[in-house]
Design a protein around this nucleic acid. Sequence first.
DNA 1: TAACATTAGTTGCACGTGCAACTAAATGGG
DNA 2: CCCATTTAGTTGCACGTGCAACTAATGTTA
Lengths: 154, 154
Amino acid sequence: MNTKGVSIDFDGSIGPWIGKTTKIVDYYLQEIFNKHGVDLTKEQMIVLKKLHDTDGLNQNELAFLTYRDKSSLARLLSKMEKKKFIFRKQNMEDRRANDVFLTPEGRAVFARTRPAIKELLETMEENITKEEKQQVIKILKKVQYNFTAQKASL
Amino acid sequence: MNTKGVSIDFDGSIGPWIGKTTKIVDYYLQEIFNKHGVDLTKEQMIVLKKLHDTDGLNQNELAFLTYRDKSSLARLLSKMEKKKFIFRKQNMEDRRANDVFLTPEGRAVFARTRPAIKELLETMEENITKEEKQQVIKILKKVQYNFTAQKASL
DNA sequence: TAACATTAGTTGCACGTGCAACTAAATGGG
DNA sequence: CCCATTTAGTTGCACGTGCAACTAATGTTA
């Protein structure tokens, strides 16, 4: 039962809080990237990170790993290709597929990403204990599970 | 010290987790709105909610309250005006300002929003205790504070 | 092998975002 | 009172998003 009769306590739920926090973190991340001369958006950084972990993934795999529509990913890659951070190479076994690789320039920006991320984390996690961090992650995982389990049963 | 030498434990931090969770929640919210025939985006819903709380706010105030650039807000309002959910009324004391009001149709969609939000929350918060919810919100508030306090000192 | 279905990627469309430059109205100071 | 500054809102631009329709290549199956 809510304090306000039939009304739903949306503001007291996690939803708006993660939304707002994400917005603030994203904004600050972009600001730090600019300060460090990192010519990347957050989204491009995420793709770069995946390629840094596993070079040569194709667009389909990258889209899946980054939770993006394949069309969004394609356009993201086009921007990054124009900036010479990655290149596409048609796969000769399956000529529909493009394998995606980091260029030396791509590796270089990604390297410059590290001190920026470090600064971000230092600000973000100030006065937050390791236990609190783990607690939050545990519950966020639960939220994700609640939705993805739901979807799987449809 | 990290397990991987000089590398930064970005994945073990809260950042990516809130980002991913927000993405999933947003996606599911939109899905539920469609299912309930609520012709709104999440962003439009947030604006509608503010107007439901306080009708007649001007664009400047709405932009501030919803953490949006005034230009984003203006465009959001234009879409909602086209759908007859809100209308702008020039303030006669300050003729630069537009006061924004809900239409009856706007109130009606907002009402249909409630069962949708209820369903969202029920799915989202399954197996999450009230204490866990409060714990997460407390820490997210701390993250927000870390950034906003930083900005204030600049 | 010919016909059909599936899959990888691209493109058009509508939506949302912030920044910078702009207009028009209000305000403040000489 | 007039000019400079500030303020509310709009617009152009570049970015990112998902969906649906499309092309081209691959796989399947009769």
